[in-house]
Each structure stands twice: as C-alpha cells, then as structure tokens.
C-alpha cells in the first residue's frame, strides 16, 4: 500500500539550517510536533524522534512488514513513507493498541495465548495487519487471513501459530 494519495497535500515549507522541516503527526491519538529532514521515513521518525520502538526495520524496501504502521486504519510500510506525507492522518503503532494501563487488545491477548511468535521482531507488524484485516473482514477465513498477511514476513516461521492467533482473535472480537 502506498500513500500516493497524500502527495498532493504537501506544500513547500521552510527548511531550517540543519535541513529540517517542522511537521505535526497524530500518533496513537496524540499530536506530536517534530523537526525532520524531508527524506526521513515515518519509520525513522517514529523510532528516532518519538522513541517508539515497536515499528522495526526488516528490509527497508517495503517487503517484510516489520515496520507496519496503521495509517487511517490501513497497514502501510513505515519504511517507504516519507514522514512529512503522514501529516494529517491518524497513525497507530503497536504502542497505541494497548489500554492506558497496558491492558492487552484482544488480538494481542490471542498472540500471547497461542505464542504466535518466537523472537517477536515481526509481531507488532503482524498484530497491526491483523487488526486491519479483522476491521475490513470480521469473518475472514484462514485462507483470507493467509492472503492478507502475505506481506508480513516472519523468519522464525511462526506462521502456524500466527494464523491460530488471528483466527482466535476473530472470535474474541466478535465477543
């Protein structure tokens, strides 16, 4: 998925002496004003400027999904999206899924109960993509989940238990 539709929204703006521009991002329900270089990706900015370490780089080229961020609810590779283009959108990282006291989202709980991970480097990406899947297709079948999650790679090969987690999460979300 790309954010091409947002490109038109960007207008020229002042660059400071360090080559940075000022942008405002809506991250996990909070407004954040930061200075970034125009080529910095959303992933770099989330990690380096905002200290959110849930999004991670795995490939840097949009192939692995470890850097997944929900942009207005849809999964986007944070490594491909210039941070400036994320302005004006609702951004959700894994840190935004839990409750105020760290209560787990039902999808997170399902991943715990099925141990849907080994090293868990890929886990935030899988959980966020699963969230988008279950929002779009609340009755997703196992096969539909396989197709939707195909852009997230797990080198530990925890796939069977990831699918078990997602199918269980589907039931939990239906309550």
């Amino acid at each position: 998925m790309t954010a091409e539709d947002t490109v038109a929204g960007v207008t020229a703006r002042a660059v400071d002496g360090d080559g940075r521009i000022s942008i405002t991002l809506q991250v996990n329900g909070r407004e954040q004003r930061i200075q970034v270089r125009p080529h910095h990706t959303l992933l770099e900015v989330l990690r380096n400027e905002l200290g959110l370490t849930g999004p991670r780089e795995g490939c840097g080229v949009g192939m692995c999904g470890a850097c997944t961020v929900l942009v207005d609810g849809r999964p986007v590779s944070g490594c491909l999206l210039p941070a400036a283009l994320a302005e004006g959108h609702e951004l959700t990282t894994i840190e935004g899924l839990e409750g105020p006291n760290g209560e787990l989202h039902p999808i997170q709980q399902a991943f715990v109960d099925h141990t849907g991970f080994q090293c868990s480097y890929c886990t935030p990406g899988f959980i966020l993509t699963s969230k988008a899947l279950l929002a779009e297709q609340p009755d997703a079948s196992r096969d539909e989940a396989r197709a939707y999650l195909a852009g997230n790679l797990c080198r530990c090969g925890s796939y069977v238990k990831i699918l078990d987690s997602v199918m269980d999460a589907k039931e939990r979300l239906k309550g």
Partner: peptide, 20 residues
C-alpha cells in the same frame, strides 16, 4: 509452562533488542 515468559512485553512491541 507458558510459551514465553515475557510474552506480554513482546506483543506490546516493548521488548528491547540491542538496536533499541
């Protein structure tokens, strides 16, 4: 025996790797 002791941190993206 749980799958992983720190599963809760891991699904919250809060487990720390060297790069963090």
């Amino acid at each position: 025996v749980p799958g992983m002791l720190d599963a809760n941190l891991r699904v919250r993206g809060r487990v720390e790797y060297a790069m963090d």
